[in-house]
Amino acid sequence: MSIHPSILECRSVGKVYSAQVRGAGTLGILRGFVRRQVREHVALANIDLAVAPGEIVGLIGANGAGKTTLVKCLTGIIPASSGRCELFGHDAFALTRADKRRLSLVMGQRSQLWWDIPAIDSFRLLREIYQVDAARFERRVREQAERLDVTDRLQVQLRQLSLGERMKMEIIGAFLHDPEVVFLDEPTIGLDLLSQETIRTFLREVNRERRTTVILTSHDMADIEETCDRLVILEAGRILFDGDLVGLRRRFVGRRAVEVHLEANSRPWSAELDGELERFGAVLVREAPRALTFEVDAEHCQPFIQHLFDLFQVRDLAVERQPLENLIREIFRTGELVEAS
């Protein structure tokens, strides 16, 4: 272990946005001319976070929780209002050119590539900006495009690509210069399941092969669950939980909600079936006439479902992950808040 084990660090970081408040309607606008009303909004409060090289951290939180704000503070796009954000041991808002070569940022809702030209042309400009060796550049583009399955789309103008293809191009661009830290802000937002899966696999592989530190934000638990080792939950600008995903996964994250709808001629639920549940560690959480919801560990999910077909005449069946709200409620309930740990 070196003396500076963290590649990035936040100490009591806060961010306050001030926005002008405008009243509704013409009168409100006129009033705003006379007396400007500014409302302060606390987007981040007292954030403490340290990430070691090679970690793959999931930053999760509902919309407006402050994920993007934290990423912006950490990448030096905006200054923190209080506290200190450090990247590579330097103030994040005063990164040197050498520091900037070591990081990358992908924003799900904002293209980092240039809109009007094919992705490959953007990559060439990035190659010059980041001074990537030509042979390495060619190899990396080819390799990464193959992995992400977009080789035949490299020559197409970016604006003509589908959302999923565009995001894959963004990711290729972000990894071209072999950055030490990559920030991805909601990279899978709005993508189809297959693209999401491809991107997650890619991130895991790059993290494993090159020890790239990855900070991934999402409001979708599936992203984090399948990609990250460590989970940070943001709620209203505060860190609610920061810890190992493996332990958490067993207790909360790895649970599935199974909802079955029964045919009219199916046997109904009855108390004597409780024993059938115990074998799989499942619990009945909701019972309605001809619709039952169970919770079960992910690893027992498949045999449990098969058994359900033996027990009932199943008309329809849905399996869902625990939504983020359940997880947060569960963490509150069990008192595993970060302050407590």
């Binding site: 912006k72 990448t75 030096g76 796009i77 050119r97 050498a98 900037k100 070569r101 990081l103 990358s104 940022l105 924003m107 904002r110 293209s111 980092q112 900006i129 980041y130």
Partner: peptide, 12 residues
């Protein structure tokens, strides 16, 4: 529109 963001993380 916030498009300046991308240039701020680039070494240029």
């Amino acid at each position: 529109d916030g498009y300046v963001t991308k240039y701020l993380v680039m070494p240029v």
